[in-house]
Nucleic acid binder design. Sequence first.
RNA 1: GCGGAAUUGGUGAAGUGGUUAACACACUAGAUUGUGGCUCUAGCAUGCGUGGGUUCGAUCCCCACAUUUCGCC
Length: 376
Amino acid sequence: MRLEFELLKTDHNSFARLGKITYKGKEYLTPMFMPVGTQACVKTLSPEEVKSTNAGIILANTYHLWLRPGAIVVKKAGGLHKFMNYHGPILTDSGGFQVFSLSNPKDISEEGVKFKNHLNGDELLLTPEKSIAIQEALDSDIIMSFDECPPASASHEYLNESVQRTLRWAKRGKLAHKTDQLLFGIVQGGAYEDLRKKSALETVKIGFDGYAIGGVANDHESKEDMYKAFSYSTKYLPENKIRYAMGIGEPIDIIEGVIRGIDIFDCVSPTRLARHGHAYTNNGKINIKNAQYKEDFTPIDEQCHCYACQNFSKAYIRHLIVCNESFGARLLSIHNINFLVTLTDNLKESIKNNKVMEFKENFIKNYYKNEVQNEK
RNA sequence: GCGGAAUUGGUGAAGUGGUUAACACACUAGAUUGUGGCUCUAGCAUGCGUGGGUUCGAUCCCCACAUUUCGCC
């Protein structure tokens, strides 16, 4: 096994968990936030800059690397780690999310999903076996089962069928899997407890090295529904395996996820928001393009230890973003990833002290302070 | 000094004797959750150089002035 997980402690007042991942002799604690590097690159950042944020695992995407440069090219390069010169743990998404974002329901069959290659229009078929084969060629450390990721607004009837299909695909993927890479199963079922329960129990029965919660935050569903999906899933998952909330999230969603027993998270938002000029702070999200920062020569966050905050002012970063200089997106990406990693570090501390609920109250008080004032 | 042309938001500009002055850029905000990397959404001239006149009605027609520009002396 490339990577071991050990549950160290559970919070006394919630389902929050402190865990330890061991990889190549190095230890990484959970809860953990994983930055996304879809095309074998965390957008705008070098591997050194990614490491400077203290991020552990990073993500790459099967679908995108399959199209470009091709799984064979990455294999010839010696695998993803060598290809992109990142030697920490890497997780690959199965392409399941692209089922949701790039295809129509009618393109989904028992065999797999038909895609139109978004680059040249070629018709492609992705199947559970193919997804596993590509991920094995990429040689990431954690690979994901190929799932269907329907919108949360789908009917109970559709979600039920979808859960069944995802289970059949999970079995096929597990059968096809031959390497020592960890294989994670994915729980679906929208915000319905019966479906999440069935999906979780059946997925566990198949037996995976970790379990993900999918189908959340993909349809502008309410936060309440998202948190239900977390609770209804983790409730039926084994204690000694990693739980992973796919595509989450915003700071508050990470906190709520941790409280409901989730260990790892990934999200594009720190890097995408960075490219669009937004920065996370403990006092809420700011848009650094706002005119009020034009002559603000203080860092984004006085307390922050990231490279951007240690060396540059809001006025300078604003200037870079306004002028479309890529260094601006890079600095904000470093800051935003660092912010989420620090958030999960703070969560680890509060789990140790059984103070997760207090931490959440405090965080909300500061983070949404300005919005509350504006409402008054 | 004489003659011609021009003058429309921060910018480049379209336009018409008749309801809310096109479009683009810039600007001002907002959005973004398993990333199709510069995207999407909204706002932004109570006014068309200034002053008069003609007209039911003028940014548009007429006159004067100002400014810019071209040519000539």
